[in-house]
Design a protein around this nucleic acid. Structure first.
Lengths: 203, 203
DNA sequence: CCTCGAGCTTAACAGTGTTAACTTTACTCA
DNA sequence: TGAGTAAAGTTAACACTGTTAAGCTCGAGG
């Protein structure tokens, strides 16, 4: 398979797939629908992407980049480590709720899909977590947070963010709980949970 | 549609669907596969379940009951509110990781599915959250936790539990992070996050 | 002019959920 | 007893899905 989608048709396929993904959602992205939209036969796609997985992986790749950009933008200079972390958390949640189709293919889609996700792309996806980890590490260095493995901490934060994004996004949360309130409480709790407590350092 | 799956074939369909779900996973549960396994035609299923959704909803119902049982069992008498909450958290995570097929149809499956989920079953599913909320409320009453809307708190806890279960279950967490360590840190953090801090009551 | 290969297509396979129409069996009622 | 009916299950079909194998078209090179 070609690596860089700069050629004509491959670009067109990827663009159409993205357009379909963002407009009507992942469930409506099918090889035939993509092909019909651009006036080609469905099998043409297989000339550029070995199978649907590869095509979706390309879209995941775009999503990873988009999220990285959002997290990076949130991570402005001149902020305290705690503020950095807070802004990143908000950026993550916003991404998850405003780009649910990307979020779905990136973090929700069935395990089978992700197992075939190439290792080198996995590494790239990890950069997003590392951005969060670095904010935590900075806070620990500044003695604002308790000493703790920053990568483990980042995963802890990630799980919490992922949890609130998926529950809200899938409309599984009771509507009597105001969405904004749950988000605020989540961010607040994340920050607070890292602060140094009088009981001293904990595991 | 019949309400109670006590009749012969309906029972058989549900049992086979469950068996297929737990043995080979949701992706392999198809009307034809269920029917083949019991020597009936696929359309027979439609005599008892209006569509696949209804059949899956019946399985979700079973899952909700299973989880409730687990949470209820964890909620033993003679424990402190804090211990109650901790045991429930562990029970939830264990359920999610040991019965991933149930967890998938209950809490991961695409929103489209859940929108058609009947309101009365939704109410039943909420009992699980209320069990967690009651433990939190008890802790607040005992002044171990800060005063806070216990239902909002329960959703906060739920999001965190859901996050760690789905990330671990989908194998998206870097394998250099030991699973058990992440779980311990999560439970620990949940409990700790509710404790009264010297800075006083917070939102 | 002929060959070759890039680029794309048609036809097909095996699978999915679902519907309409049909059969078969058994039971009720005049 | 015979007719009618309703229950229980069937077959055939539709419109989809991802994917593969084989074939077509057309322009460039020798």
């Amino acid at each position: 398979m070609l690596k860089d989608p700069e050629t004509g048709l491959q670009r067109l396929i990827l663009d159409t797939a993205r357009q379909l993904l963002t407009s009507v959602g992942y469930a409506q992205v099918s090889m035939r629908k993509i092909a019909n939209k651009i006036g080609y036969s469905a099998t043409s796609i297989y000339l550029y992407y070995g199978n649907k997985d590869e095509l979706v992986h390309a879209l995941i790749d775009e999503g990873v980049d988009l999220l990285y950009q959002d997290l990076y933008d949130a991570d402005q200079a001149g902020l305290s480590p705690e503020e950095r972390l807070e802004k990143m958390c908000r950026a993550y949640i916003r991404f998850g709720l405003e780009k649910p189709e990307y979020y779905e293919i990136m973090y929700i889609l069935h395990p089978e899909y992700i197992k075939r996700y190439p290792a080198e792309k996995f590494r790239k996806a990890r950069r997003n977590l590392e951005l969060i980890a670095s904010a935590i590490a900075a806070a620990i260095d500044a003695s604002q947070f308790e000493a703790m493995d920053s990568m483990l901490s980042a995963n802890l934060v990630w799980a919490q963010l992922h949890g609130v994004v998926t529950l809200l996004g899938s409309e599984r949360v009771d509507k009597r709980i105001p969405e904004q309130e749950l988000i605020e409480a989540t961010v607040h709790q994340i920050i607070r949970s890292f602060r140094i407590t009088p009981s001293g350092v904990e595991v």
